[in-house]
Simulated scan of single mutants.
Amino acid sequence: MISPAARDALQTWLEHQRALKNASDNTLTAYRGDVVEFLAFITEHKGAPQGLGALQDIALSDMRAWMAQSRGTGIGARSLARKLSAVKAFYRWLAEREGFEATAVLSVRAPKFQKKLPRPLAKDAARSLIDTIGIQSEQPWIAARDVAVVTLLWGCGLRISEALSLKGPDAPLPDVLRIFGKGNKERVVPVLPAARESVAVYLQLCPHAQTADAPLFRAVRGGALGPGPIQKVMARARMQLGLPASATPHAMRHSFATHLLDAGGDLRAIQELLGHASLSTTQAYTAVDTARLMEVYDRAHPRA
């Protein structure tokens, strides 16, 4: 059981994250779950609900006990690092508000883990995947829909959630799209002719009327299309082509960035197209070798 004071503080912090940092609903849900899990452990570990005063007395041994218990449940280092990050963010805010030192919490080091990034597809493999997706469904409009969605992922570097959030008024697709990504951050993305044409073909075949408040991409019965059908159709297509399991919808976005970089694209421009907050994220995401990164960097920042 979590004390009312701790629960109220958590809710206030979450509202702060939404208002000042524009955190998404998914982020807030993850934060809530991680911090509640931590507070529940501390309650059980200490043998009594922990009010705000007691939470100020958390020791390094308490943090280590929580991390050991978490690892004992079978979660990986990456998941534990995420949970610790949420707890630290909450404690950093709480310590500032309540005026105490949170050294024991903030000094804990996250477990090391190997970052796993989706591997990009070669250009020919990406094209073959889209062609194969186009013959997976017996209903032409569904096949055209699936091709249109995946083409947007590869051709515009959209996240699948961003592609599926498009509405009826977004069609016909213009030369550039205004996309609201993570944290509701806006970015402008050029639309390639292939992407525009694939969406146009889908709209010609779609049996559901497009209205101002309706989603652009529709499920079989006319509701909003979720990511599941796209994930499934890509899984079938990649099995037929003998592609690795890493050939997922997100890998198409990854391929977009990598192919642009390979063609000489500037990292800053790619960062803006992807909607990354920092250049370091783009560097890690594209996973190019050091020599290639230095070549691009030297062109962007020539030495005197």
Rank of each mutant, 00 (worst) to 15 (best):
A209D: 13
C206I: 01
A212L: 09
C206Q: 14
R221N: 15
L166E: 13
A237G: 05
D262I: 00
R253L: 02
T211K: 14
R218F: 14
C156K: 02
F217K: 05
V233W: 08
R253G: 09
K185T: 07
G183L: 03
S246G: 13
A224Q: 15
Q204R: 14
V189N: 03
A251E: 10
P227S: 15
I230H: 01
A224I: 00
T248D: 01
A219H: 14
P244W: 04
Q210G: 07
S198H: 02
D213K: 07
S278N: 15
M239F: 11
A200H: 07
L152H: 08
A194D: 11
A245G: 08
A237R: 01
L192S: 15
S161F: 06
A257D: 08
L152P: 09
E272A: 15
L243D: 10
G226F: 10
K182R: 07
K167Y: 06
F256V: 00
R187C: 02
F180Q: 11
Q271V: 00
I230D: 05
P244V: 08
G181V: 05
G265V: 04
S255M: 03
S165M: 03
I160M: 09
L153D: 12
V150I: 02
L173V: 06
E197N: 09
E162L: 03
L267A: 11
A195N: 09
T258F: 09
F217M: 04
S165V: 00
A171I: 04
P227V: 07
Y202N: 08
V199P: 08
L279C: 10
R253S: 02
P207Y: 13
F217D: 08
L158M: 07
G226M: 06
V188E: 14
A263I: 00
L267H: 08
L152D: 03
R159H: 13
L164M: 10
T258C: 12
L243W: 00
G265N: 04
F217T: 08
D262K: 11
A245Q: 11
V188Y: 09
Y202A: 01
R178N: 11
A219L: 06
L241N: 07
C156I: 04
P169L: 01
L152E: 11
T211G: 15
A200M: 09
G265L: 03
R196Q: 15
A224S: 15
V201L: 13
R196D: 13
A269S: 14
M239Y: 11
L205G: 14
H259L: 02
V189C: 08
F217V: 07
P190Q: 05
L241P: 09
L166H: 10
D175N: 12
M239T: 14
S278Y: 11
S161V: 00
G242V: 05
V189M: 04
G275M: 02
Y202V: 03
L205P: 06
A171R: 04
V233M: 02
S198A: 15
L225S: 08
L260F: 05
Q210P: 00
S165L: 01
P172C: 13
V188I: 15
G155E: 06
G275K: 05
D213I: 00
R187H: 12
G265C: 05
L273N: 09
G275W: 02
P215A: 11
A269T: 12
L216F: 04
C206G: 11
K185P: 09
R238Q: 12
V176R: 14
P215T: 12
P227K: 12
